[in-house]
Design a protein around this nucleic acid. Sequence first.
DNA 1: ACCCTCAATTGAACGTAGTTCAGTGATAGG
DNA 2: CCTATCACTGAACTACGTTCAATTGAGGGT
Lengths: 199, 199
Amino acid sequence: MAGKVAERRAALRENLVLIAERTISKKGLSALRARDLAAEAGCAVGAIYNVFGDLTDLVLTVNARTFHRLGADVAEALADAPQDPVEQLVVMAQAYHRFAAENHLAWRALFDVERAPDEAAPDWYLKEMGRLFTYISDPLAVIFPGRAADEHALLTRALFSSVHGIVLLGLDQASSGVPTEDIDRMIALVLRQFVGAVK
Amino acid sequence: MAGKVAERRAALRENLVLIAERTISKKGLSALRARDLAAEAGCAVGAIYNVFGDLTDLVLTVNARTFHRLGADVAEALADAPQDPVEQLVVMAQAYHRFAAENHLAWRALFDVERAPDEAAPDWYLKEMGRLFTYISDPLAVIFPGRAADEHALLTRALFSSVHGIVLLGLDQASSGVPTEDIDRMIALVLRQFVGAVK
DNA sequence: ACCCTCAATTGAACGTAGTTCAGTGATAGG
DNA sequence: CCTATCACTGAACTACGTTCAATTGAGGGT
């Protein structure tokens, strides 16, 4: 029976990730507790630290999955979008909004993890980010042909950041009155106005 | 000697706020500790709770001051700005960026405080936010006259959120390569492009 | 000047986190 | 079947925010 240990470890790891994912999605990052986690997984608290270095490692694993789902949602929206590059941008941004709204706490956890100040961003983060940037970059190249590469990169980043800001502040004060439709309207307003300026 | 107690309380309060402000500015919100605070202020830990309900109350007081300084900086930039409404928007947004960069940890603390889920945003927050929105709203009314009031409000909020997003993501990864000049360029790019002044 | 009352102040103690590690028990190879 | 090894256990440790019984000292009455 070779690898019975590794098997159990892998199973525990998967289990912990699923439980953490559910806890974060339902009750938020701050509700994640080592003891609760162990109790739900039916293991000792110490076992968690055999699989993950610390709870932040576990959260980062959950975040990687969340980020991947986010990327897939945006990609799906893009696949179903019309050919018009402006509409593609709008559709993707609204897909981003929809994902953030429907997975609010998990989405928040993406940014609420505190990284060590000098620690580099994880690999998967940069990779998924690059993926999202490509989705934006391509339609932009159609809309604004002949821009310098560096300006094009800045434009891409700027648009992503703008949409992110609109969603972030819109959902933050969801209780104090920014309806979902208004967030979508703001996104469309900024994107259409942005590209319409040169049309 | 009437009010000697109240006097000491007020002095302690001021002292605690100043110490907390310095700690947050230098080491970040997460470095704020009740025991360190008491040691620095030369009082018992319990004394903090005679003046503030809890540490979050203290942080909110610091945040109110930070937000006020931010509003003043933006107002000053607006006062020195040219008449052109587009340039006014750019100048204000870059002032927002400069404040965030120069007071990074204090600025982050504005958003990193976790509020109770159902608790309303504090009064001073809404007031300062309204102040910032007015600064943006006025030039926008000149640039886009004759828009419906609700669309105008959405536009204002959308532009603020966009600039906030650009600054937030730009400063977050400052280590992994978004120079200050690029953030300013993105701000100018979005705002100028938005209002149709193609350069 | 003295004491007495009561509220402000103290800091040890409490509850709850994340994390560790010596003891225990199961595993895989001989 | 035995045993060296290593993963697992959970009590213990540290570090928080917060509380509260005990203490102190201020302000008024005599």
